[in-house]
């Protein structure tokens, strides 16, 4: 009985938590907690000076994937910073969860009917919006896709993370950390999805081209922390000369850190990807050398900059890299990195 009442309480507690979360974030910069508004003030964009500025009357309307993750809060902060620089009002909305495709469509309709100067969309479903997107194009409102593309020619450009290049950045730091010599292992979370493949291959090709003295081991695939731990331990035990392990997401990196701890190999350099509470803690504790994070702040900036250019009638490239950033113990609390990290 006790057990079941507690179980019933779980969704209720979660619902409360979610509501609290979404109200604080949708309230905008002013009403967010002290820590995040402090972060918001420190967010800045590398806004190019050759873009013609607006007069603060026009709106750039951004439809995101919601506020469930800290990631989107950071995108919003970046977008608002760029909007301030370029003289545009920013309207930033998103559905309550990443499953609410229809809510997102409604928000896109609302965006269209408010006749903004430009619209940005981080589509939850690559197909579902095609009809609305067509009408946005017909209304001659510039459309920018961000975070993920859509199966449509309507967006003028897509602003997203280049995972291959980001994995190359991780490899660059692995080379620096190991002095470009020794055996390095890979624990990849997935080699079938596009993202997983790019994160694995991007690392391999950077090492192959730039660090001929590093011996790269066959990547082991581990979809879970537990599997990643076992795989990383196999790598260490069969290669006494191993100097580093790269994990392609938080779970893979966490597994590598755990394996190194189990065999007391404190000098093993573990390089990871993304952020997350556990990985951030491992980096702060010095158990993990560092990681590459996507740059949600830059994603927000670049989306607004692209929108402003489109409003001015400038040509845009087909894709725009929203960037990535290396972080480690030294810069984890810095103003450039902190807004990009999400738990």
């Amino acid at each position: 009985m006790r057990l079941s009442t507690k179980l019933l309480a779980v969704p209720a507690v979660l619902a409360l938590g979610l509501t609290a979360c979404s109200t604080s974030s949708s309230g905008g910069g002013a009403s967010t907690g002290a820590s995040s508004s402090a972060a918001a003030t420190s967010v800045s964009c590398d806004t190019p000076s050759d873009v013609k500025k607006g007069d603060n009357t026009k709106t750039i309307y951004l439809v995101s994937k919601g506020f469930q993750h800290r990631f989107w809060q950071a995108v919003k902060e970046g977008a608002e910073a760029a909007g301030k620089d370029l003289g545009y009002k920013i309207e930033f909305v998103g559905p309550p969860s990443e499953k609410d495709t229809t809510v997102q469509l409604d928000q896109l309709e609302t965006a269209l009917s408010s006749k903004p100067a430009a619209i940005g969309l981080a589509a939850l479903d690559t197909n579902a919006a095609s009809d609305v997107l067509k009408r946005i194009s017909d209304a001659k409102i510039p459309l920018i896709a961000f975070d993920s593309g859509v199966d449509s020619d309507d967006p003028l450009t897509t602003v997203s993370t280049d995972n291959t290049a980001a994995a190359g950045e991780a490899a660059k730091h692995m080379v620096e950390l190991t002095g470009g010599k020794g055996t390095v292992g890979l624990v990849c979370h997935d080699v079938t999805s596009q993202t997983g493949k790019q994160r694995c291959e991007g690392f391999k090709s950077y090492i192959a081209q730039n660090a001929p003295e590093i011996k790269l081991l066959e990547p082991l695939v581990a979809p879970s922390v537990e599997e990643a731990t076992g795989a990383a331990k196999s790598l260490i035990q069969s290669n006494p000369d191993i100097v580093g392990i790269y994990g392609t997401n938080e779970a893979s990196a966490t597994g590598a850190v755990q394996a190194a701890t189990e065999v007391n190999k404190a000098d093993l350099k573990v390089v990871g990807f993304d952020s997350g509470k556990i990985q951030i803690q491992a980096i702060k504790d010095g158990k993990q050398a560092g990681a590459v994070t996507q740059s949600p702040v830059k994603m927000g900036c670049e989306t607004v900059i692209a929108a402003a250019k489109a409003i001015n009638g400038d040509q845009l490239p087909k894709t725009i890299d929203s960037g990535y950033a290396w972080y480690d113990k030294n810069n984890i609390d810095s103003a450039e990195i902190k807004p990009n990290l999400y738990e």
């Binding site: 979809p223 879970s224 922390v225 537990e226 731990t229 779970a251 966490t254 597994g255 755990q258 556990i278």
Partner: peptide, 12 residues
């Protein structure tokens, strides 16, 4: 299973 890393990933 979860005691090794003390991390629980709900989808794995």
């Amino acid at each position: 299973y979860s005691a090794r890393t003390a991390v629980v990933q709900p989808a794995e």
